[in-house]
Amino acid sequence: MTVNQASIGATPSRSGFLRRIAVEYGQELIVFSAIIALFIVVSIVNPRFISANNLTTIFAGNAYIAVAAIGMSMVIITGHIDVSVGALIGVLATISGSLAVAGYPIWFAWLAPVLVGMAINSFIGILVAYARIPSIVVTLGAMSILRGGLISVTGGDWITDLPSGFMIAQKRFFDIPAPLIFMVVLTVLAALWMRHTPFGRSLYAIGGNKEAALATGIPIARRTVMVFAIHGAFAGLATILFATQLQVIQSTVPPNLELTIITASVIGGVSILGGTGTVIGSTMAAILFATIGSALIFVNVSAYWLRAVIGLLILATVLADMWRRRAKS
């Protein structure tokens, strides 16, 4: 494997603003260009693609993936991984929906998944940081436990009759769909936090070079637990958007959701080796996936080919990224 590089950015350079952007946000730019290119091409083939209706569907319907990918990016930047997040979102959605149906206050039904997500992921973080079990092993186990637990509790029943006040994902503020606001605000806040606070910066340090981070006095174990907890909070927020999208909650784990979320982080430029990447990239990657999915429908490609096309694009993005990194070094 290649050697980790903690490119914490903000290297003082005399070159122009654009060049700095290109160097620091290379992967984000590639993903952004891909989205733009896709929009232009598909709109030429089918102008209805850029109708306001369709744009809303694209962005709002997939905002929860972007939100979950924010937390995932933090975990990966710290040098860990979480394959249990899909199962976690399934469990949290069921908890949230059950509370809403049982007549608890709506705010409580929204708060509960965030808190429970934080609690469960803190526990995972403790196993990773203090019991020193590799995160892929812990989360692989956690995935089985959450998935099995969910089905044995619910028996696969759907939750229906959700109160209308609960459906935040269907609301609009100033005529902007709520999920879109969530996605943008959370991404911007998380990006600022990671770039400008000591805590946020320390994640890059831990993922980039553990020994060096330890030597500078960063409490690695405690930070690791907190990153997992924050990731759990984002999973909880993503759950709220996911669970309030439709009138029913299917008490099953959305298949392959964890892979979609991890892929969004990675395609957005988060190095799986830790130490680099931004949440702006992961959000854009989530938008890219959604755009591809919608684009295929508008250019009349059979839905059965959707995954193959996404796979090809992922591969192309990854290879472009490797090529870019080599060109840089």
Partner: peptide, 15 residues
């Protein structure tokens, strides 16, 4: 790499 081909190969199977 295998995350990408996971999507690609499954996609080919579905297609």
């Amino acid at each position: 790499a295998t995350l990408a081909t996971l999507a690609l190969y499954r996609g080919l199977a579905e297609g």
